[in-house]
Amino acid sequence: MNTSDLDGRRVGLYAVLFGLVAFYLLPLEIGLVTSLKTDPLASLPFAPPAAGSFTLEEWGRAFTALKSGLVNSLLLAVPATILSAGLGSMAAYGLTTLQWRGQVGVFTLFIAGIFIPYQAVLLPVSRFWATYAPLEEWLAVLWLLPGLEAYHGELLSLIITHVAYGIPICTLLFRTYYKELSGEMVEAAKLDGATAYTIYRRVILPLSVPMFAVTLIYQFTQIWNDLLFALVIMGPGDGAPVTVGLTNIGSSLTNLGFGVKMAGAFIAALPTMVVYVLFGEQFAEGVAS
């Protein structure tokens, strides 16, 4: 193999890699330019808007339509993410660092929870919130407070639901991490007189910071992106998160409204994209394990 041969191979390799970049990014590029055109049908889909046909109107319309959805999504995703990561860390600690017989059995139940198709639980969950635990009615007195509305009760139900179904994956992520921590270190803490609680608070928790980053990012993306639970538990009401709002933008199978659809898609995806661009490494680590 001589050098020019080698160079040829390297060039080919990079050509393929950049081709793949185009494959993965082109749909986004097309979406972006389309959202800026007055008439998406008038030019090639990937061409940037011509001088006369540039508009920000579609972004404005999409933003107006999705504004409340964005707020709701934020109110939903932030607490649900933090709670599920926190509870997952606790569960993983109780099932990994503290050792007792049968913990693998309990852990298996957690893990199986990751793979449950939500369709197998949808009816009971929607029934539970609608009939047996109508938080909206129970907390009625709260909605009198300024800034709180009745649909915040529905959001609360959705938060609890997401926390419950997020715990398994968070537990798995933290357990993988805690298994790598030195067992002798925990034993040293025990001999130092630390209780299960203080070992967690003073030794394990401070060491979990990198894993919290991974888990929070992964969970935030998952919860922000979800449509199914939002649709079934609250429907397209005042409390609907942005994903529900996005499905109602433009009409689907006609040529009308592609500009606003694309703009809406970007607005809905913006928070996860920002998180992804900033913390892509952690996201990759989260999905790889």
Binding site: L20, V21, Y24, N225, L227, A268, A269, T272, G280, F283
Partner: peptide
């Protein structure tokens, strides 16, 4: 290459 995975199905 992993970017599309961070997007919602809806998007």
């Amino acid at each position: 290459y992993l970017l599309p995975m961070s997007l919602s199905f809806v998007v």
